[in-house]
Amino acid sequence: MKKVTMADVAERAGVSKSTVSQFINNRYEYMAEATKLRIEEAIEDLGYVPNYIAKSLRQKKTSTVGVIVANILHAFSTEIIRSIEDECEQNGFHLFVCNADDQPEKERAYIDMLVAKQVDGLIIFPTNGNEDYYEQLKRSKFPIVFMDRKIDHTFYPTVLLDNEAAASLAVAELVQGGHRKIGMVSNSIENKVTPRLERIAGFREAAVKHGLEVVEEWIIADQVPNIKGRLENVWKKTDRPTAFFAANDLALIELMKFAKQERLRIPDDLGMIAIDDSPFLEIAQTPITVIRQPTFEMGKAAAEMLFSLIQGGRIDSVCEEIRFAPELVKRNSI
């Protein structure tokens, strides 16, 4: 079967090849509506598929961006991806999504792959361990925006939650609910993940501010499979928390599993509050009070920032840090 060309589309629509090219490249501000309609119909009738690879080589742009998330299991990550995808669609970009599993080696392999595919830029939930590569990419003026996490050196603009404010909000809500013995549950901080470190620091500071005792054994930061066992050890003691603050959705799930195992009534036997929201938390047997992250606003901000860099922003000098305010959603778990 003969391959359909741009010349075939132009002939069918009764226009020049340059007019068809302008249409394909979204440069039709001054094109008559009837002309656009004829080209659209010709493309559909002939089954014409533009050669985007050839186009990208000519323009040195592919209209694609990549997102490398640290852990796609977090509801936060999937909501951010959806928001970025919406912005890409509105701006004529396509999206690659990769999951690094919090592994620097896997993240670096994905960066290599996406750069080889000539993506125009990346949004990365960075791991600690690829600083040399980030520096190399910045020297080459490759557009990148960091999301949710900071690393030891500031190479690129970064979008984050105000994590310490979120922890402070959680502690204040528990104290207002009458709790004076409060514990915290988080994923491991071994890899120095920014939100976890900042939320634990915010928890400590808020506890002191409210005159609470900070009991180290009650601050559980461990690999997810180990959290329930650590909670069991705390619960064996006569002096134990009356409420817990979960640093994220995965930590909250382990806390809820523990409460179910021990047949604890929420909030009568154990109060809880968490950062990150999910539809199931609203319809749980006891709806869970949460500190919500403005994920769609954060994703939109990161995408807009990346598009600005792609379109010629100063990659060599921009290191802006944008913090978003958390939002308290009161339910019945305190």
Rank of each mutant, 00 (worst) to 15 (best):
R204H: 12
N51K: 04
V119R: 11
M1K: 05
K61S: 15
V49W: 00
I53F: 13
K138S: 06
E282Y: 05
R314T: 13
A221M: 05
R292D: 13
R12T: 09
W235I: 01
L212Q: 01
G299P: 02
T154E: 15
C88D: 07
Q22T: 00
F203V: 05
Q22Y: 12
K138F: 02
I220E: 07
V214R: 00
R323H: 09
I322S: 12
N91I: 00
E282G: 09
A221P: 00
R58W: 04
V67R: 06
A109I: 02
E29A: 14
D120A: 11
L57M: 14
R331A: 15
A302L: 03
L37M: 12
L137Y: 11
L114M: 10
Q136E: 15
F96A: 00
M272C: 14
Y133T: 07
V9Y: 12
K330M: 12
L306F: 04
L73Q: 13
R12S: 11
V185A: 09
T238G: 06
A100P: 07
K61L: 12
E217Y: 05
D277G: 01
D112W: 06
T154I: 03
V329A: 06
R331T: 13
P241C: 09
R180C: 06
I123K: 08
V4S: 08
T286P: 04
I288C: 15
L306H: 05
N91V: 01
P126N: 09
R149P: 00
I310D: 03
K60P: 03
I283T: 14
V193Y: 11
I291C: 04
E282K: 10
D269K: 01
A243K: 01
K3G: 08
V69A: 11
M298A: 10
E232F: 01
T194V: 00
K192E: 14
V224H: 03
W218H: 09
I200E: 15
E232Y: 02
P50Y: 10
R204K: 15
E320Y: 05
H153M: 08
A247S: 14
R108S: 15
G313P: 03
V20N: 07
V159K: 11
D45G: 06
T242G: 05
G211L: 04
V208R: 14
D112C: 10
G312H: 06
P279Y: 09
I200N: 10
I273P: 02
L252Q: 08
F307R: 05
L114W: 05
A167M: 04
I43P: 00
R331H: 11
T154M: 07
R38V: 02
I273R: 01
N71K: 11
L212N: 02
G313N: 12
A165G: 04
I68A: 14
F125P: 00
V115P: 00
E232H: 04
R149Q: 10
H153S: 14
G66N: 02
S168H: 08
Q285H: 09
T295I: 10
P225Y: 08
I283M: 14
F146Y: 03
S140A: 13
E282N: 06
N130T: 02
F23D: 09
V15T: 12
S18D: 02
E131P: 01
K3M: 12
S188K: 03
E87K: 09
E105Y: 08
V185L: 08
V208T: 05
K17T: 15
P50T: 08
K61R: 14
D269V: 03
